[in-house]
């Protein structure tokens, strides 16, 4: 880890002012400290956000959706009983995410902005494309954990368990910088690295996520989160899926399918969701949805199994909505 200065501002304005060139924002540190230890990030200043009041906790004003502060520790979302009832997918996703220690340290905002786990990217000694090198080493290297779909120059996968769950709730995020505030759909935060965009997030320099908002309408959907790992705990998803829908008179309305672990971004195919509108979610519909979700999948040498897994997880998640 390189040497750096450290500040713990009490206000957002101070934090934004400090987040100039070479500074990095620190929340739970579970990703950033690792990146720094691996020499992948070498900030001159760390701006610790945890001293800022007002960015921690969540609220649900009647009928106006849920707002979650970006600095809320994941464990608080996981263990809150009323939130578990309102946003069951979130709870399911968090229960198998990392470990209790990491969920205690990690925050919502940090989770959304965590960087990918590709072992070539994480290896300081490998000059991969995403880090400014000339090529992707995984595409013809060791790629059992890599993308099967939606990848361009870089075949890393979206690692978060929280993100598919939040996107299934149509989450939006609020962003603040010294230039002002804006908001966007959470799914738009994620970009598949390509061409000149050697990055995973559309966050602008000096910008911070302040909160996540879930519209009230999305809370009416029932849902589930299914995750396949290569051991029974403490693993990033090989494939994961958040599925949500309203079930009215035995058929599905307003379906959301968001997958993790298979593409550089949280994977959502609108056609697959639309195709399930009014469907009883029977086996044929599930197979059709899986086809649509995975159209264009091009597995690499070692990750063909993910296609089989992804198809089954689509089926399993959808079937559980009508179970």
């Amino acid at each position: 880890m390189n040497a750096f200065s450290y500040a713990r501002p009490r206000t957002l304005a101070d934090a934004l002012r400090l987040l100039r060139n070479g500074a990095a924002a620190l929340a739970g540190g579970t990703d950033l400290v690792g990146l720094m230890k691996d020499g992948l990030t070498r900030p001159t200043t760390l701006v610790d956000l945890t001293g800022i009041d007002g960015l921690r906790g969540w609220s649900h004003p009647k009928g106006r959706g849920i707002r979650i502060g970006a600095l809320t520790p994941l464990v608080e979302l996981e263990t809150d009983q009323s939130l578990a009832k309102t946003m069951p997918i979130l709870r399911e996703a968090l229960r198998d995410a990392a470990t209790v220690q990491l969920r205690t340290m990690g925050t919502v905002g940090g989770n959304l902005l965590q960087r990918n786990r590709c072992w070539y990217f994480r290896d300081e000694g490998t000059p991969c494309w995403l880090k400014g090198g000339t090529r992707c080493f995984a595409v013809d290297g060791e790629n059992r954990y890599h993308a099967i779909i939606g990848a361009q120059e870089c075949v890393m996968v979206s690692p978060s368990d929280l993100v598919p769950a939040l996107i299934a709730y149509d989450a939006e995020i609020a962003l603040t910088s010294s230039r002002g505030q804006r908001s966007m759909k959470l799914i738009d935060l994620f970009v598949a690295p390509r061409g000149r965009e050697r990055r995973e997030h559309s966050l602008r320099p000096g910008e911070l996520i302040t909160e996540v908002r879930v519209p009230e309408a999305a809370l009416a959907r029932r849902g589930t989160y299914v995750k396949a790992m290569d051991r029974k705990a403490w693993s990033f998803a090989l494939v994961s899926i958040a599925a949500a829908a309203k079930i009215e008179r035995g058929v599905a309305r307003d379906v959301r399918l968001v997958m993790g672990g298979i593409a550089p971004v949280p994977w959502r195919v609108i056609a697959a969701e639309k195709g399930l509108e009014g469907s009883p979610l029977d086996e044929a519909a599930c197979a059709d949805a899986a086809d649509r979700m995975l159209t264009g999948a091009t597995p690499l040498r070692d990750n063909g199994y993910k296609v089989t897994l992804a198809r089954e997880l689509v089926r399993r998640a959808l079937r559980s909505l009508v179970a």
Partner: peptide, 10 residues
Amino acid sequence: RGPNISNVPL
């Protein structure tokens, strides 16, 4: 629950 997050002072 928790502080009101809509009024973060700038």
